[in-house]
Amino acid sequence: MDFPRRALITGITGQDGLYLAELLLSKGYVVFGLVRGQSNPKRELLHRIIPEVKVLTGDLTDVSSLIRVLSIAGPHEVYNLGAISFVGYSWENAALTSDVTALGVLNMLEATRLYAGSDMGKVRFYQASSSEMYGKAQEVPQTERTLLWPRSPYGVAKAFGHHMTINYRESYGMHASSGILFNHESPRRGPEFVTRKVTLAVARIRLGLQETLALGNLDARRDWGFAGDYVDAMWRMLQQPEPDDYVIATGKSHSIRDLLDVAFAAVGISDWSRYVTQDSTLIRPAEVESLIGDASKAHATLGWKPEVDFRSLVSMMVEHDLANQKHLV
């Protein structure tokens, strides 16, 4: 195999893409990032914080553009992180979510297969699967063998991509692995996601910039980890001699109330009840009540374990948002 190693990341402007690019660059990779269109608002962010990434324009809904990008990048590893990833948005735009988050996986797999040609070992492929595929969880905790029962258009789309990745692995001998990642957060998380929505609001409330925070279901429980830890698991999967699927999770579950406890405590507020309101319009049409993952397989095979715990993660995010909002005071 030629050196240095070359990697192509779709969805590179998201939190996972940014952390993964930094990790791969630190390991000496040449990193290419797929960006959709010239007007992508996050393109400038990518250039500013990780200028070493080589940006290529393409679209997960256009196979021909993906084949062109692959021929330019010449990657040894492809990380397919691109998706419409906000679950709530998927009910409003189920068709678009399906086109990008489901069929986009098929397009990327097919483009990679065509690029690799008869040498299926030429490229190793990672698919970003999701714990949202479990939805109405049939067992606790969830493992790689737990029945998928998605409860959102996003979860359904991710399940399609997950099974398609397995199909390409079994049909064509592709080194294609899926990481079933449970919720993972960071200061780079978009403000539409509940964790960042909370930490940003807490920072603004502490600084006097905001009075209240509206949320939906406060009793929903998730297995939350740090995105910077989880991208290391992605890389480890593609270093294995055989492709496989792995649950990546902390194995610990927390409710939205727990999230509020830790976030408000980080700014010295012990009783958050007077700052938080419940808005029924923010409750999902089909709720996922509780998710918790069993990452035993990843521990044993990949040698991977999370390093940042829940309290440290939330405090990190609050501190970041405090620092970023202070100039508005």
Rank of each mutant, 00 (worst) to 15 (best):
A201T: 12
I205K: 10
F160D: 01
E170R: 15
G225T: 12
F226E: 02
L181H: 02
V156A: 14
Y172E: 07
P191Y: 09
I166P: 02
E170V: 02
S177T: 07
A157K: 00
T199V: 14
L215N: 06
K197Q: 14
S171M: 10
Q210R: 15
I166R: 08
D223R: 02
N183W: 05
F226R: 04
S186H: 06
L200A: 09
M174L: 15
Y154P: 11
G216T: 11
G161I: 08
L213S: 10
M164G: 00
G225I: 00
A201H: 06
E192Q: 06
I180L: 15
F160I: 09
E185V: 01
Q210E: 13
N183Y: 03
P153Q: 07
I180M: 14
W224D: 02
G155M: 05
G155F: 07
R204V: 11
G228F: 00
P187A: 01
G173H: 10
Y168E: 10
A214M: 13
R206H: 14
A227F: 01
F182I: 05
E170A: 11
R169Y: 05
H175Q: 09
Y168K: 07
H175A: 11
R204M: 09
A201G: 08
A203K: 06
M164T: 05
D229M: 04
R221E: 15
G228W: 01
F160C: 06
E185Q: 12
V156Y: 04
L209I: 15
G216N: 08
A220S: 15
G190C: 00
N167P: 00
H163L: 14
H175E: 09
Q210G: 04
K158R: 13
S171N: 08
D229P: 12
T212A: 10
G173M: 12
I205Y: 02
L200E: 15
H184A: 13
L218T: 12
R221Q: 14
N217Y: 07
F160N: 00
L218Y: 09
G216C: 11
V156H: 11
Q210L: 15
L215V: 11
R196K: 15
N217S: 14
S171I: 04
L207I: 13
G228C: 07
L218P: 12
I180Q: 11
L218M: 15
V202W: 06
V156P: 00
S186G: 09
G208P: 06
H163Q: 12
G155I: 03
A176M: 06
F182Q: 05
F160Y: 15
E211M: 04
I180W: 02
R204A: 15
R196V: 05
A157Y: 00
K197R: 14
R169H: 12
F182C: 00
F226M: 03
